[in-house]
Computed example of a mutant assay.
Amino acid sequence: MNAETVLELARRKGVMIATAESCTGGLIVGALTEIAGSSDVVDRGFVTYSNAAKMEMIGVRAETLERFGAVSEETAAEMAAGARKHSRAGLTVSVTGVAGPGGGSPEKPVGRVCFGISDAQGTRTELVDFGDLGRAGIRAATVAHALDLLALALTEQ
C-alpha cells in the first residue's frame, strides 16, 4: 500500500493518524507527510529512538523495556497505545526493531521488527523477520509494512 492510499482511506473514515517510530526514525510519518495536503489526517509522529524517549514521550513502562526489551511486541503495543493517548489520532502505528548492521542477537536478529496498531478496537501487534536486507532495505520494508497495516486497519473500521 502506498502513503497516498492510506491518506485517502483516513480521509474517508475521518480518522487522524500518528506514528511512534524507533528503527525507522520518522520515515513512516515522513512518507505520509511527503504528500501535499496530508495535514488534514496526519496529527504527528513520535521519533522514540531511545528507551528514554519511549518512556518520556509516549509512556512506555520501564518494566516493559526491562522485561521484554525495546524490540518486542509488548513494547510495540505500549508505543502504539501511548502514541494514541498522547495525540489527537484515532489510529496509530508503532515500529521497533533491529535495522543493523550489527546489533542483532540469536533471539532478536537483524531484520526483526515489531509493529503495533492502536485504534478504537484496541491495540494489536505483529512481529516480522525481514531478514538482513541491509539497514536501508530493512527500514524501507518496515515503512511499507506499516503503511499496509494502517490501510488494513482503516478498511476494517
Rank of each mutant, 00 (worst) to 15 (best):
R135Q: 14
I138Y: 08
A141F: 10
A141C: 01
A153E: 07
L133T: 08
A153K: 10
R124Q: 06
G137V: 08
D132K: 05
A140V: 02
L149P: 11
L127E: 13
R124G: 00
A141D: 06
E126V: 01
D148N: 15
A140T: 13
F130Q: 02
L152D: 14
T142C: 04
R139Q: 15
A140L: 09
L147F: 10
A151Y: 06
L154V: 06
A146W: 12
F130H: 06
F130P: 04
D132P: 04
A146N: 10
A144Y: 10
G134P: 13
G137R: 06
A151P: 03
G131L: 04
D129V: 01
L150G: 12
A144I: 02
G131P: 11
T125M: 00
A140C: 00
R124D: 01
A141N: 03
I138C: 11
L149D: 07
G134A: 08
D132Y: 12
D129N: 15
D129Y: 04
L150H: 10
R135C: 04
L152K: 15
R124H: 04
R124Y: 01
D129H: 14
R139S: 06
A141V: 00
G131S: 04
G134C: 09
T125N: 04
G131W: 04
A141M: 05
G134K: 05
T142A: 04
A141Y: 13
T123A: 00
H145R: 15
F130T: 09
D148W: 08
F130E: 05
L127Q: 13
D132F: 12
L150I: 12
D148V: 02
D129I: 00
L133E: 05
A141Q: 08
A140N: 11
R124S: 05
R124E: 02
F130L: 05
E126L: 14
D148K: 12
L147E: 08
A144R: 15
G134R: 02
L127W: 04
V128H: 08
R124F: 00
L133A: 01
E126C: 02
A140D: 14
T125G: 02
T123K: 00
H145G: 02
V143D: 11
R139H: 06
G134M: 07
A136C: 01
G131I: 02
L152R: 15
R139L: 10
V128T: 05
L150T: 12
L147T: 03
L152P: 00
A140S: 14
D129P: 02
D132E: 13
H145E: 09
L133W: 11
L150C: 07
V143F: 09
T123H: 00
R124M: 01
L149W: 02
A144E: 15
R139K: 15
A136W: 03
L150N: 13
G137E: 03
L147G: 13
T123Q: 00
H145W: 08
D129G: 06
A144N: 14
L149G: 12
